[in-house]
């Protein structure tokens, strides 16, 4: 994701590159057919990894289709000996009214909690990369080191602030978020927790944009606002897209932050999933089906954003 801008990245308006990229594409096609013949070992290795990584998930999928009594009695692979599958688990899970509500909650929580940290982090990463000031490295390393702060340690102070606000002897400084929408707290909490990693990742990418590109824009009279918007953002689309995917996933699958900041009506799908097991875990057999339903959205997001990994990069080099 980072380090990907080649040192000889063409400056804006350099006509030659377009041709170069096209040639490179042609080269890819011829090489591709060659590769497939010569690297049989690589094909086998990648197949092995793919299978090893998929088997657990596949097992869960099969389990989600098995009747309750069978799940504890025999291994999931035995369905291939005795075919006995049912959609009943899915029907039971989908009939759960909390599920559809929490599904919507997850979407409402996740989208702003993905966009906000990305933008805030991109601004900060830009300053760390392209504005000089003393103590810059120290401050950056401090931000980077904040990744290690365990979220559990931050919950009490943050919830206290959100709930009680901030008061001094002289009066209120911040009134808190009581009665300020049910999602506000969880949006802000996720934004904060994502920042150290986001700043670190985006900085790595933004700082590798060749200095000449930025300098050229500056000579043309662009200020930091324009450089950020017109040059840095388009060039970092791959980094932003991949971080967006990961942040989306982390928020979507988060239970810890949701437990504290998204209670009651705002409960996301992970909380509903955790309660699917029922009292004393009596209905734990519903979990595999629930897990698959919850997985649909992240997979769609991955498919939708995947192409930006490559396209963003090429677009950046040709358009400038």
């Amino acid at each position: 994701m980072t380090s990907t801008i080649p040192a000889d990245l063409p400056l804006p308006g350099a006509k030659t590159t377009q041709g170069a990229v096209e040639r490179a594409d042609e080269g890819n096609i011829t090489r591709r057919s060659k590769r497939r013949l010569t690297s049989r070992g690589a094909t086998i290795a990648s197949l092995v990894i793919a299978i090893l990584w998929t088997i657990p998930t596949f097992g869960l999928f099969v389990t989600s289709l098995r009747p309750q009594e069978e799940i504890t009695r025999s291994g999931w692979w035995e369905v291939f000996l005795r075919w006995d599958l049912t959609l009943e688990n899915y029907q039971t899970v989908l009939a759960n009214e909390d599920l559809s509500r929490s599904f919507i909650n997850s979407i409402v929580i996740t989208l702003p909690a993905t966009v906000a940290p990305l933008v805030v982090a991109a601004l900060a990463a830009y300053a760390f990369a392209w504005i000089d000031f003393k103590g810059k490295n120290t401050l950056f390393i401090l931000v980077f080191a904040l990744q290690i702060v365990p979220i559990q340690m931050t919950l009490v102070p943050l919830l206290t602030l959100f709930f009680r606000g901030l008061h001094t002897a002289g009066g209120t400084l911040f009134e808190g978020f009581q009665g300020a929408g049910i999602y506000t707290q969880v949006w802000i909490a996720h934004t904060i927790f994502a920042l150290p990693l986001a700043i670190f990742l985006l900085h790595n990418f933004i700082s590798e944009i060749p200095g000449e590109v930025i300098e050229a824009a500056r000579v043309d009279g662009a200020g930091h606002g324009q450089i950020f918007l017109r040059i840095v953002l388009p060039l970092t689309v791959p980094a932003i897209a991949s971080f967006a995917i990961f942040q989306f996933l982390w928020v979507w699958n988060d239970l810890l932050v949701a437990l504290i900041f998204a209670s009651g009506e705002a409960s996301p799908i992970t909380r509903t999933l955790a309660e699917l097991t029922g009292q004393f875990g009596r209905t734990a057999y519903l979990l595999p089906a629930g897990a698959f339903i919850a997985m649909i959205v992240p997979l769609i997001v991955f498919f939708a954003l995947q192409r930006y990994f490559v396209r963003g990069l090429l677009a950046g080099s040709t358009k400038g």
Partner: peptide, 21 residues
């Protein structure tokens, strides 16, 4: 009466008590 049940009750009640929520 708004009831909220969670299996992580023990995990969160301490945090919520300490922060006043």
């Amino acid at each position: 009466i708004q009831y909220e049940g969670t299996q992580e009750f023990e995990d969160i009640i301490g945090t919520r008590a300490q922060s006043g929520d």
